[in-house]
Structure formats: C-alpha cells, structure tokens
Write a protein that binds this DNA or RNA. Structure first.
Lengths: 142, 142
DNA sequence: GCTGGCCTTGACGCCGGGGTCAAGGTTTAC
DNA sequence: GTAAACCTTGACCCCGGCGTCAAGGCCAGC
C-alpha cells in the first residue's frame, strides 16, 4: 500500500503521514523506487493514533499506544505505559474542566452584574425603588 | 509614567505593552525623547485587559472593554458590545466544557475497560469465575 | 566622561499539527 | 511519446502571545 492509499483509508492526508514518520511514530518501509510501503498493520497503528488525536491527545501521548500495538499486544492500551497516559490525561481533563467551570462562573457573575447595572442606568428603566416608599403618595401605576 | 513602571505596576512586561500597542489596543503618547508616556488611565485599561486575559479571553475580545473605558464609561463592561462578548464567551465556555466532559467520560471508560482486561490477562490474577461455579468443589478460600 | 540602567525599533524563535508550494522522479494509460 | 496521476525531499507559512536577542539612543550619578 502506498502513502496516498493509506491516507485515504484512514481519512487523513499524505502530509500527515509524512509528519508522523518524521516524528518517528509511523516509519515506513520503502519499495524499490523509493516510495513508502505500508501494510495492514500500519493502518491499525494509524487508526489508533487518529482515535487518540480526536480525543485531543498530543502526538507524543499516542506513542506508548503505538508501541504497544507494534509489540504485538491485542490493543494499544494493553500496556501499563498506555494506562498511565490514560490516567494522566484524565487528571489533566479534570483540572481543565474545573478551571473552565470556574471561569465560566466568574464570567457569568460579571455578566449578571453588568446587566443589572446597565438596567439601572437606563433612563426610563426601573428606578431604584424603596420597598417602604419614602413618598407613599407616588403610586406605582404609570 | 514610562513603560517599565507601567509594566511593573500591572505585573506584566514591557514586551507585552509594546505588543498591545502594536495591536492598537493600548497606544501611548510619546515624551520628548521618544519614550512612551502613560497615565493612570492607561493602568486602568491595562488592568482590564489583564483581567480578561486571565479568563482566557483572546486579545481581540478585550477591545470592546478597553474602548468602553476609554469612552468614559465607569466600567469596561458598561457597553453593549462588551456584554455581547461576555455572552459569546459564556456560550463558548459551555461548548468547551461539554466537549471536554464528553471526552473525559470516553477516556474514563477506555481506562476502566483496559484495566479490566489487564486484570483478566494477568497470570495468577482473578480468573474468569462463574457465579454459579462450573466446578462446585473448588472452594473460594485461597 | 563613563558606567549602568533605562528606553527605542526590528527581527527571529517558539509551540503543534500539519497546509501548501516547488522542483523533480516514476509509473500507467492512451 | 506524452500527459496524468502518483510519488519524493525540502522549505516556508499559519496561529497567539509574547520571549529574547541585537544594535543603538538617552539620562542619572559619580
């Protein structure tokens, strides 16, 4: 299988495959004319990489999975190193989510406050009204 | 106030201030010798920028806030354009959090499955045991 | 007048994951 | 024999938000 075919089967580009090879992640044999030659096994490795990439894993983090597969294990996550990556990614995701949630709440609070202030400042908008009116003769109606 | 002093007061660097100026976000007057000259007002603008940056806002998103302050409004978020930025940021944060949560759950599931499989594959580890034992004479105790 | 500490502009580097030429070799189909 | 569709390496570009030099100007204190 040549590079274009593998790229198409995996739904990626030839540039990406060359990039992976340059990173030492997916080396290729060469056929007589210098073209890269891939097998079905490479397609499996590539699919593993893409799956993790879709999760937002960095390329380096996929390496243990690829090496695990290449070592003959049934799945990319059959090796302890891969499990460690899972775990640290989980921790990272949790930290990231917590941080974003915190920011979300703060921004939400800012928005609420700013909207209130804008409301108060708008002429004709609701005036600051005392519950126990200072001037009982001013009715609310209009 | 010169650039170094302003940077220090705002807890940032001169490089950053020059960058903001290059983006048209925080232009500076010049004193006779060509040095940038800032006032207290610039410090307020800068603090507003840094606050939003700390929230993870992109620099461009801080522009409405800065212009709002510069227009004389009491706060950077006193203007509708700023409120719109708040709202779109909130929506973006929500999408981001939801996506991360989804990934987190998937990765968590992968980890759980892989750990189970590793457990099962470990020789001497717990063998696949039928609840209704196929060999009732094998007791559980050791 | 000289050293040290400020300031100026300009330009390149970084990071990740490739996109997009450029200039050329190979193979296949007509 | 020639055009089309592959393939090769090499190199620069992108994004955001600066960090980090380089080469030189300005000013204070001694």
């Amino acid at each position: 299988m040549r590079i274009g075919e593998l790229a198409e089967k995996a739904g990626t580009t030839t540039r990406t495959l060359r990039y992976y090879e340059s990173r030492g992640l997916l080396p290729a044999r060469r056929s007589g004319n210098g073209y890269r030659a891939y097998g079905e096994e490479d397609l499996r490795l590539l699919r593993q990489i893409r799956l993790l990439q879709d999760f937002g894993f960095e390329l380096e983090d996929t390496r243990p999975f690829v090496e695990c597969l290449r070592a003959g294990h049934p799945a990319g996550d059959s090796c302890p190193a891969s499990l460690e990556v899972y775990r640290s990614k989980l921790a990272e995701l949790d930290r990231c989510i917590a941080r974003l949630q915190e920011v979300r709440d703060q921004v939400g609070a800012q928005l609420a406050r700013a909207e209130l202030e804008a409301q108060a400042a708008r002429p004709g908008g609701p005036q600051p009204r005392c519950e126990l009116s200072a001037h009982p003769n001013e009715t609310e109606g209009n």
